[in-house]
Design a protein around this nucleic acid. Sequence first.
DNA 1: CAATCATGGATAGCAAAGCTATCCAATGCT
DNA 2: AGCATTGGATAGCTTTGCTATCCATGATTG
Lengths: 223, 223
Amino acid sequence: MRLAELSTRSGVSTATIKYYLREGLLPPGRRVTATQAEYDEKHLQRLRLVRALIQVGRVPIAAARQVLTALEDESLDHNSRLGTAVWALPHGPESPAGAGADGDDADTAAARRTVDALLERVDWEYAQGYGADAPAYRMLVTAVGTLSRLGYPCSVEDLAPYARAGRQLAVADLDLLERYDSPDEQLEAAVALTVLYEPVLLALRRIAQAEESNRRFGRGAGE
Amino acid sequence: MRLAELSTRSGVSTATIKYYLREGLLPPGRRVTATQAEYDEKHLQRLRLVRALIQVGRVPIAAARQVLTALEDESLDHNSRLGTAVWALPHGPESPAGAGADGDDADTAAARRTVDALLERVDWEYAQGYGADAPAYRMLVTAVGTLSRLGYPCSVEDLAPYARAGRQLAVADLDLLERYDSPDEQLEAAVALTVLYEPVLLALRRIAQAEESNRRFGRGAGE
DNA sequence: CAATCATGGATAGCAAAGCTATCCAATGCT
DNA sequence: AGCATTGGATAGCTTTGCTATCCATGATTG
């Protein structure tokens, strides 16, 4: 199909598709003449994935490019591609937010200790091993640091239930993933499910909060 | 304290603080003369909360203003304030993403049915009642619609484990909240904890994914 | 009590992100 | 032959969140 058809079938304007091609989010079409290119179903599928990552998953375009590049990097094996791709996914602000003359990185250090204790508590040895520069680890330290700087509860005991929930979520995630046989499908699904289930999860939490709040305090709050 | 001191103590530039004052994220200081204003510890605390919401929670400034306004709206009772505040929190893209000539709102309708079935399945009657225009509900429908449009699994059975996890999270959230006695503290904490525990949760899920992946497939992926 | 300097309000500007609109020559279609 | 379409390049637009510059007023200090 031509670019115009790709556009109508995906609901994305040709201008935007051209932009994605330029940005390397979409592989170029098969050049059929000097001025025309041919796109196929794979392009359509990829385009839909890109839209989903960007619009639903709020993945910035630069990160999306890294992720997608890793997915089809022929020089890596299956596991390395997956690792690289997920590594590139967004993970909140890198710098621990403006900590003035007040807490600064003493808080960050304390947060790191809390996180390490938590990982030990729930027995995640692999996670402990794979480095303090893992995006998810840094994200966690940042968030915990912010919480404690603001005086909100975030002790190991407070965090433990969330870690337990995270564990169950991961089990559900991997269960979904095991349905895919082809390595390529599995790779793409891993990224898509990681990102696209985030809003699902956050929405379910909010709804459950309202439900639980209602259960405890009776008819009333929307929370 | 003066604006300059507020700035040094919070680590936020005076220009930014002025901007927040202008945007109504921060109540104006007590005017002590015609050209000077006095700020207190409450301002400092509020400023820190604002920074956390914006930087860690990625709450847009307009939404933050609505949230904070609701928190101190004297004309509402406790529960209404909480409901209004949480209602105003960000909840993904409103429009179901560019669905071209392909799935469009047939998918959205299907997603809505799936979500309703899920809520019934897990017995969340209150949630079912409180309206299809609740932000969290819409967010969920959008996300499920996107998943199914992309061909990823999101049946009621697939979603159920996530709903169960959401329920546990909500229980943990409410447990944290019950520590606060003063209504005002509780209100602020509800917002802060809802928003600031999101990155905690997402990070823990990613780490748990890596852990679980390692458990199932042995040494290998970073996922 | 005059000189200077900080304060806070208003205004305009800037940087990044994510598109979008215009132009253009080469080519396809009839 | 002639008009429309294609895809590539380039420049522009919009929003968001912040920053920099002015400026009159009032505080401060020798």
